[in-house]
């Protein structure tokens, strides 16, 4: 970032678990910030907004346009406009690479598959049903049950010799299933790998229902789980295109891109 006076465009993605902000300048440089959403969506959004402004030493007055998105978008009173994260993920991916035609986004409380055109317009989408199956929350529960964290969950996937067959995708029932597997003496690695495979099948089938379009990327916090990413790649048979940014901020980036286009 240079020091001269610039115009800025901000996207804030208030997700169910984390709130993300991306600030773009008129040359397309970006900075970002992430915070846990907590219980006060509006306050957290102001904080991440402050975070990105701080990084470029700017004030809200330097921001020409601000777009809010995500589950908590209605709480963003200071946004110039709001749009769904479905459209934002399409715009974010298009900004990174205009060749991208599909985004698989796995967030804290839902997962979605989005098709986009060469302009970054969302042309079709599909979302999971109203439960935690196939979401970040599901993996959080698995990590807790295995007394580990999300980072480790990602690593031990690759230590598995024989992934367990996991049948349940419901957070409530998978807990019972994990207890049974532990009781049978299964290793944590086999359980984790089994969970990732079951997860990959579910998300993969959702993507196939919509129709796989290349090139495609994986976004959302869950994209940081290398085990799941690997399983999903193998299940779908086509590697993900590189994203080049933190996969968690793609929605906020799309909102910032829209801010840039709207101003």
């Amino acid at each position: 970032m240079t020091q001269k006076k610039k115009h800025y465009f901000v996207g804030i993605d208030a997700g169910s678990r984390t709130t993300k902000a991306v600030l773009l300048d008129d040359e397309g440089n970006l900075v970002s910030a992430i915070r846990p959403t907590g219980i006060n969506v509006g306050a957290t959004a102001e904080e991440v907004f402050g975070d990105v402004l701080g990084q470029v030493d700017a004030t809200p007055r330097d921001v020409k346009y601000l777009v809010g998105t995500g589950y908590g978008r209605v709480s963003l009173e200071f946004a110039d406009t709001t749009v769904t994260e479905l459209s934002c993920h399409a715009l974010g991916a298009n900004f990174i690479n205009p060749e991208i035609r599909m985004v698989i986004d796995i967030g804290g409380q839902d997962s979605k598959v989005i098709q986009l055109d060469e302009n970054g317009s969302m042309v079709d989408f599909i979302m999971n049903d109203k439960c935690a199956a196939g979401t970040g929350k599901f993996l959080e529960m698995v990590a807790r049950k295995l007394e580990t964290d999300l980072e480790n969950l990602s690593d031990i996937h690759f230590e598995s010799e024989q992934p367990c067959a996991i049948n349940s995708m419901c957070v409530v029932f998978v807990e019972t299933e994990i207890i049974s597997l532990l009781a049978r003496g299964e290793s944590a690695a086999n359980i984790v790998s089994g969970v990732n495979w079951a997860f990959a099948n579910r998300i993969g089938n959702m993507a196939r229902r919509l129709g796989i379009k290349e090139q495609y990327v994986l976004t959302g916090g869950v994209a940081k789980n290398r085990g799941l990413k690997d399983a999903l790649n193998q299940y779908l048979g086509v590697p993900f295109a590189p994203l080049g940014i933190d996969p968690q901020i793609n929605g906020a980036l799309g909102a910032a891109v829209l801010a840039l286009r709207s101003s």
Binding site: E85, L86, M122, V123, F125, M127, K130
Partner: peptide, 18 residues
Amino acid sequence: DTEQLRIRVEGFMEQIAT
């Protein structure tokens, strides 16, 4: 599930507008 549904419906309207 009203808020979850709202995202789909709003997204659908964006899709149609596009």
